Amino acid sequence: MVALSILDLVRVNEGSGPKQALDRARDAARRAEELGFTRYWVAEHHNAPGIASAATSLAIAHIASGTNTIRVGAGGIMLPNHAPYVIAEQFGTLAQLYPGRIDLGLGRAPGTDQMAVRALRRSPENAENFPQDVLELQAYFAPPEAGQRLQAVPAAGTNVPLWILGSSTFGAQVAAELGLPYAFASHFAPDALMPALKIYRARFKPSDQLAAPHAMIGVNIIAAETDAEARRLATTQQMSFANIFRGSRGLSQPPIDDIESYWSPAEKAQAAHMLAFSIYGSPATVQDRLGELIETTGADEVIVVSDVFEHEARMHSFELIAQNITPVP
Rank of each mutant, 00 (worst) to 15 (best):
A230V: 09
A146H: 08
S306P: 07
E125W: 06
V42E: 01
T93G: 07
G111F: 12
V72C: 15
I70G: 10
L137Q: 03
L135Q: 14
Q237D: 14
S65K: 10
L320E: 02
S252E: 13
E44K: 00
N129R: 15
A299S: 10
I63M: 07
A88M: 12
A64V: 08
M1Y: 03
H62G: 03
A242P: 04
A52F: 00
A202Y: 01
L94A: 04
L120E: 01
T236N: 04
T296D: 11
I325T: 09
I244G: 01
A211R: 13
R24W: 06
L290D: 11
S240Q: 12
T226L: 03
T297D: 11
I60Q: 11
S261N: 06
Q287K: 15
P181N: 05
V86C: 02
L106N: 03
V134S: 08
I51G: 05
R11G: 05
A64K: 14
A109F: 11
Y262G: 06
K19S: 10
A54Q: 09
S186C: 05
V174P: 02
D257S: 09
A269S: 14
R118C: 04
T297R: 00
S57V: 04
Y140T: 02
G15H: 07
V308C: 05
F241G: 12
Q132R: 14
S123W: 08
S278D: 06
R11V: 08
D23E: 15
D103Y: 14
A146N: 10
A228D: 13
H62R: 11
D288Q: 15
R121W: 13
F204Q: 00
T93M: 15
H316V: 00
P144Q: 09
Q20W: 02
L150W: 07
P110L: 10
A146G: 01
F130K: 09
V42S: 03
F245S: 07
A59F: 07
G111P: 12
S264T: 15
D103G: 10
T67C: 14
A211C: 03
